[in-house]
């Protein structure tokens, strides 16, 4: 019998410090994942936790991790050559096929950029896939900025608005991401667009409301959720909201479903 929660050992190839508390770990594996899916990372003696795949390539996956607790703190002690255990991939990622040929608007708060990073890189490397990409990325302050190199590179390919909540920075705006929603040229899209929102729960809530205020079609908005997870395979119950399991039916949800989920 196949065991869907069996962790497999993988070698860490590289550790890249994005910011003081957010590091990207590149891990050797042949596993193929959909953009927006997540995996369970395991450290024997400590436990496991769900982490989004933030980039993928030939023979490797990347995870961008914030050290906030037991498992993530120990992952931060690992260096290239060390072993980390993986199982997955799990969940439903971004419906990339539905985004093809459309104007894509991506709005992220903080490390919410991680679960869309691999899709952004896909659009950057295959510009014909979509009509345009508009990216609004907000961070609390300068210390919280991740993926510095990619943010610069995306400026060349996409229409970007980068912002810090309260601080100022050259070439960056100041304010919450919600403040910039009205600057997206919605009218020029001819209805042919899709919107992706990822960030902390309050950010997603207020961004959703702001989008509706700007006349954005509720059916064209997508969000990615994070909930407590122990199993990632629909057994432990921790991630359940109503009849929905975030680990199985999500983490990516159409807004029409996401807005009705009451924890």
């Amino acid at each position: 019998m196949m065991n869907p929660v069996q962790p497999k050992p993988c070698t860490i190839l590289d550790v890249h410090k994005e910011s003081a508390h957010e590091w990207t770990f590149r891990v050797e594996t042949d596993m193929k994942v959909d953009h927006g899916q997540f995996m369970q990372l395991s450290i024997p003696k400590i436990g496991e936790c769900p982490i989004s795949v933030s980039a993928q390539g030939d023979g490797w996956l990347e995870f961008t991790i914030r050290n906030v607790g037991k498992v993530t703190n120990v992952i931060f002690e690992k260096t290239a050559g060390d072993t980390m255990f993986l199982r997955g991939p799990y969940g439903k990622g971004w419906p990339v096929d539905q985004f093809k040929g459309k104007h894509v608007v991506i709005i992220t708060g903080g490390t919410g950029l991680a679960p869309v990073r691999s899709m952004l890189n896909l659009f950057a490397s295959q510009p014909d896939m979509v009509k345009s990409v508009h990216l609004i990325s907000g961070f609390k302050n300068e210390d919280g900025i991740v993926f510095h190199k990619e943010l610069e590179a995306w400026k060349e390919r996409f229409s970007t608005i980068y912002a810090l909540d309260n601080d100022t920075k050259d070439g960056w705006r100041t304010g919450m991401v919600t403040a910039f929603v009205k600057e997206i040229p919605w009218d020029s899209f001819g209805g042919d667009y899709a919107v992706v929102v990822v960030g902390p729960p309050p950010m997603m809530k207020f961004t959703g409301l702001e989008l509706l205020k700007n006349g954005v079609d509720v059916e064209k908005i997508w969000m990615s959720f994070e909930r407590k997870m122990s199993c990632a395979v629909g057994k432990c119950g921790h991630c359940r909201i109503d009849e929905t399991y975030v680990c199985l039916d999500g983490p990516v949800f159409p807004y029409t479903i996401a807005r009705d989920l009451v924890d």
Binding site: M1, M2, N3, P4, V233, G234, K235, C247, L248
Partner: peptide
């Protein structure tokens, strides 16, 4: 229904 079906995953520990 939960252990041996939900999401297409069968829980080995229950099923065995």
């Amino acid at each position: 229904k939960i252990y041996a079906g939900n999401g297409g995953y069968t829980d080995l520990y229950y099923e065995r």
